[in-house]
């Protein structure tokens, strides 16, 4: 058994932190995409015609029930053949955002369903146009209620970003892997990556729980 090498740890740390930036970038961009697309799905679930509801529901169900990693491979290898060439990071962000949008869609749906019927009735009684009812009355209330739930998905997505290493994105895990491959010492870089994840994810999840309690009242 070999002992922990602190100087080697110090040596790989800058690369890992550079990877962390990529990881955070992917999480941030992926979240924005997931929030936006999820809202589109949630509104499509309420479309008046089933020709919208049904296909959207099927696609969302399919994407949610299949592995993100395989979806990333699909995007990574198939998108270029259709003439769309993106950087690996962009491909990864699309994959993360699309996958998580199927979860945020459910969150929004629950939030929208949670707005009391009286709010719809009051909007009708005031003859507010449909669009205005959504943007000024329903969505502000729905989204406020689901902020903690959305936050939890950001954390979940953050923990899924190492998958982007599989499509050559230089995230934290990829950096650790490369450092390991160079020196044949994986223990230090991978342990540090694991700890960094806990160090970021745990306080953030505590924050979400606190937020949930506050908004719950």
């Amino acid at each position: 058994m070999r002992t922990w090498d602190w100087s080697y740890t110090g040596h790989v740390l800058p690369d890992l932190l550079r990877g962390l930036l990529v990881t955070l970038e992917a999480t941030a961009l992926g979240s924005v995409l997931a929030f936006a697309l999820g809202l589109v799905w949630a509104l499509a679930f309420r479309a008046p015609t089933r020709w919208v509801r049904w296909p959207v529901g099927a696609v969302v169900e399919f994407v949610r029930n299949t592995p993100l990693l395989v979806q990333l491979f699909f995007l990574f290898y198939v998108l270029p053949t259709t003439g769309l060439t993106f950087s690996p990071l962009t491909t990864g962000v699309i994959g993360l955002g699309l996958h998580y949008s199927t979860y945020t869609a459910e969150v929004y749906r629950a939030g929208i369903d949670g707005v009391p019927p009286g709010q719809w009735e009051a909007a009708t009684a005031l003859s507010l146009p449909r669009r205005r009812t959504w943007t000024a009355v329903i969505l502000p209330q729905a989204i406020r209620r689901v902020v903690p739930a959305l936050g939890n998905y950001v954390i979940a997505m953050f923990k899924d970003t190492p998958m982007l290493a599989a499509i050559t994105v230089l995230d934290m895990l990829k950096q650790a892997e490369e450092a390991g491959a160079e020196s044949f010492r994986y223990t230090e870089p991978i342990t540090v990556v694991g700890l960094l994840f806990v160090l970021i994810a745990y306080p953030t999840s505590l924050l979400m729980r606190a937020l949930e309690r506050r908004l719950g009242n």
Binding site: G118, Q119, E121, A122, T124, A125, S127, P140, Q141
Partner: peptide, 17 residues
């Protein structure tokens, strides 16, 4: 309907405004 107003049992004010 624009000429008809309604006051509800549960008020139904918009809590976000």
């Amino acid at each position: 309907r624009k000429g008809i107003g309604m006051v509800f049992q549960q008020f139904n004010l918009f809590p976000n405004m």
